[in-house]
Design a protein around this nucleic acid. Structure first.
Lengths: 220, 220, 220, 220
DNA sequence: AATGAATGAGGTTTCATTCAT
DNA sequence: GATGAATGAAACCTCATTCAT
């Protein structure tokens, strides 16, 4: 109902009124507290009482910004998804080789965690414990996935065009292969502390394969 | 408290008494209903009222088999984890090439779903929405992962020994690479309906890489 | 409904049939377990599961002897009340001085505890946590009290007749005074381990009072 | 959790804010309803549904004042114990004869009932049916008894010093004797409607004893 | 605008009691 | 006759949501 996009009531004075700025700050605090709680405990274990206490406001005040608990979380996740989509787009558009871009994409999925936009891509949703129904309908998860796939496809096609990537492999399969490295299966990645190093290694494998080069040479 | 491993009183007649068989059947029904509800709605959204109604028994009856909601779910998941570990072990021990075994392992993660032992590996836990604390303490998730990694490592080492797999790649990285294909990032795999075909393709990529063979040859 | 006074079905053989004797033994075990649990935990905290387990029978078997949990406890208490009334009567009828009998009555309230008939008199009911309604209607607590008072009155009247007790004191007041020493206010009595010694001391006080004899003499 | 000792935010206006006063009033209503139910039915038979209905509020509202059923009852009893201790202390400190004070102490145990602070002393706890464990741990019943005994001892020692009480009788025995009259054995006291008259009579007996004065005189 | 207070709906759990074998 | 199994009724407690101030 009430949304973060509410326009301030009086834009006459300079820019935003003091009240309005405070309001925005509070909204930000609520979202941050929610993010922390959500990643730590998941949707159901997290209570609005807790968040209000964390921010230092009354529980009812949350309802001035969001019409329900679900809307609060959805709103948070939407922002995160948009941000991750934005980041992904930035990388995809870079004027560098396809492999270099792929490396950065894999790196993206390791950074961030709770700091920047809350991990990246899939891992974000995984830990929330939201109903699938909600994820699909409210977050348009399907649409999100499609956009991600489209962006990634562009890089892959670029790779094929430039001769970096084997054009014989169907793009659909390449998509899935790359995306498999973007979520985490509940276990820590190796090189957890050095995402760049990790991404480099993954790409090396991805491109050269794990097969023994001797046998491959022999095969030809 | 009461567990599925309770041995029947074995009155010596034939096999299991009628009562005992009925008991086992109902326990199985409860577990199935729970699995369905768990995968569909997650731990919190699922209620015992619902499960009891589904099975056609009174809610209190569930407590004859499990001492709490948590124990019910934990018990279900434990069975599934053990089953998946068993399946994995079977494959690992087969006297076939490492690559063939890896192909079957990847295939395992696609089959089953709710049918056989409830998906496989990680995906199973992902959708439950159980508290991390519970997952670790009650399910020994850490131990489970270690066992999986150990089994997979065996195949990978075998591959290195037989010359199938590039020995220059650290096994730790190989482990993670393979496991990345065993969980699903919330999206359908391509060839969803033909796990074997899908597994074959993945292995092809995994071994040969996605790099353009021409360039690779040139690089040497 | 079913009561302990059930007559055996076939009294034809000698005395009681084997079955019947076993039945009586089991009933006794149930009552004992109930007494223990009742004194330890009170009516509500005590469960039939617990008692059945203690005796080593199925919970449903208890219902072959008593038609409800309440009836079981009532039955137990009734027996105890009757027994205590019997003991009291024995003492009252003894051909000894009133004071000696009073001493023994006070002593009665200290002995027994869980051993014999479960404490005595009031203390028994105090710890059970039964609804007052039940205590009155099912146990006829009022009738019980009346009988106790009547018996005690006899001793007191005897004391007055024999010149031991001051005839100027109303018997009603004497009754209450003596009975005050028959229940315990949730605290241990002094001389807890020597009821006889304790009873002797109480009687000494009861007869001579706690006033300073010098002043009393002076007063006259 | 929230306790009756929470200080109002004291907004500086006059005394307590309207909200705060209403809050206190309802808390008082809850406690009264609880007291009634507790004395009437005991801890287990009494339900929060019932109390809420009695007060005319929702069940959940009770949890705004007390974090659990147990805490509610404990809180009620604590207040009553403290009040009774306060009353006792007032009497003990009065600059009147020991006997006069003892008379008032006995009188205390008859007044009040549900009206003032909920009976007095022991009788209060007796009817609640709380687990012994709780009574001891949460209510510090042992400590309470000790304080009562200490206060009473003071009066008794005073009596010995002033020559009112026979110094040959051990104080410990005197304590118990007096306290025997402070609890009620489940029966009504005589002179129920005139506590002062009753107390006077008890003290008369307590001091002079029930022995026949003629015999006592003769004995000397 | 902000909040403290109130609540209704729902969930898990316990047990005395019944019934088919 | 004895029992294991099944159950219904009820209790406590939580929390997202609303409302009066």
């Amino acid at each position: 109902m009430t949304d973060s996009s509410d326009t301030p009531k009086s834009s006459g004075i300079g820019s935003l009124s003091l009240k309005e700025r405070q309001r925005q700050e509070r909204l930000e605090l609520i979202l941050q507290a929610t993010e922390t709680a959500l990643l730590e405990k998941g949707y159901h274990e997290m209570s609005l009482d807790e968040i209000a206490a964390q921010v230092g406001i009354a529980k009812a005040t949350i309802y001035l910004h969001f019409s329900s608990k679900e809307e609060l979380v959805i709103s948070l996740l939407k922002r995160a998804l948009e941000a991750s989509l934005h980041d992904l787009e930035q990388v995809v558009m870079k004027p560098i080789s396809a492999r270099a871009r792929m490396e950065q994409i894999v790196g993206l999925s390791c950074k961030g965690k709770k700091k920047e936009h809350g991990q990246l891509f899939f891992a974000l949703i995984t830990g929330t414990n939201l109903r699938k129904e909600v994820i699909e309908k409210q977050l348009s998860w399907g649409d999100y996935l499609k956009k991600v796939v489209t962006l990634i496809s562009k890089v892959l096609e670029d790779g094929k065009s430039s001769g970096e990537i084997n054009p014989a492999i169907p793009t659909e399969l390449l998509q899935f292969t790359l995306m498999a490295f973007l979520s985490r299966p509940g276990m820590e990645t190796p090189f957890e502390q050095q995402p760049e190093e990790y991404a480099k290694q993954v790409l090396e494998i991805l491109f050269k394969g794990i097969g023994n080069p001797d046998q491959i040479l022999n095969r030809n």
